[in-house]
């Protein structure tokens, strides 16, 4: 009973961060709309590139153009959502200005509070930009979509796992700022890894064998490639469960690393004053 009250209270507190972030995102509607324009531009760019590559071919590697189009659409939609969270440079900025150190004066866990804040801005972006835009696009373009509720449900689970993996990695990279004077290199590594190994624009099945193998051993494929593949039906049956399991394992690993780095960063703040 008491435990329930505590859990409920904690949830309410973190939930308040989501609400405030939602309100803040609403205050910056214009920002959301400009972002969606950029998102659509990239969508068209990749759409035309794949259209060109597929020209005159029915299937490539057993994947039809309709499935590929679907892959790009859902990938752009997910990337849009991820982009609505706190970007890497902002985390770096908060470390530099000492804002993070100040938040240690509060009775909450910083990584959790950040996650819930991101939920708020993402929800706003999801409702006002992603859903209306992509509903129209899917209706007009008629790409491949999940054919069963279970496929759709598994996609949602996988997409959420992917989001959490990226969140852990991005915050960890942001926290590296505590030890670095110049953070451009960290940013480059992060964005390179995210854009290539996550399968955000090129599905891993088009990778040369060795690169596909490398990507298979990295956590990034769990961010976009797995949910996208489930969505377009390239992963089915047992393979879906295997992929979900690997996402869960990667999430646990990334979370453990995040906690470790956060503990080290907190120690650095309290010993060296940030």
């Amino acid at each position: 009973m008491i435990l329930e009250v505590i859990i409920l209270g904690t949830f309410k507190m973190y939930g308040e961060f989501s609400r405030k972030s939602f309100q803040r995102a609403a205050a910056y509607r214009f920002d959301a709309w400009t972002r969606i324009i950029g998102n659509v531009m990239f969508l068209f760019m990749w759409g035309f590139i794949w259209y060109g590559l597929y020209h005159g071919k029915g299937e490539v590697e057993g994947v039809s153009f309709q499935a590929m189009l679907s892959y790009i659409l859902i990938s752009q939609a997910l990337q849009g959502l991820h982009g609505a969270g706190t970007p890497l440079w902002e985390i770096q900025e908060r470390v530099r200005t000492g804002d993070i150190a100040m938040e240690m004066l509060r009775p909450y866990d910083y990584p959790t509070r950040m996650l819930f804040s991101d939920f708020g801005s993402i929800t706003f972006y999801f409702m006002t930009a992603i859903v209306p835009l992509y509903t129209v696009l899917f209706l007009v373009l008629k790409p491949v979509v999940p054919t069963s509720f279970s496929q759709g449900g598994l996609f949602v689970v996988s997409a959420i796992l992917g989001y959490l993996i990226r969140y852990c990695i991005e915050l960890t990279f942001g926290l590296f700022t505590f030890w670095l004077v110049e953070t451009g290199g960290v940013e480059d590594i992060f964005y390179f890894a995210i854009s290539l190994f996550s399968g955000s624009v090129i599905p891993l099945w088009f990778f040369p064998g060795w690169l596909e193998q490398v990507a298979g051993y990295l956590p990034f494929q769990g961010i976009f490639f797995v949910p996208n593949s489930i969505f377009v039906g390239q992963l089915t049956g047992q393979a879906v469960w295997d992929a979900l399991l690997s996402q869960v394992i990667w999430l646990l690993i990334c979370y453990a690393i995040l906690r470790f780095v956060w503990a080290k960063a907190s120690m650095k703040i309290v010993i060296q004053g940030g």
Partner: peptide, 25 residues
């Protein structure tokens, strides 16, 4: 700290108070 703020920059002032209300229960 006079040189920095604990309020949410982009939101009406009252929202920060409500947030702190939740944070400190």
């Amino acid at each position: 700290f006079g040189q920095r703020t604990q309020l949410w920059w982009d939101l009406p002032t009252i929202e920060s108070f409500e947030l702190l209300k939740q944070v400190f229960e």
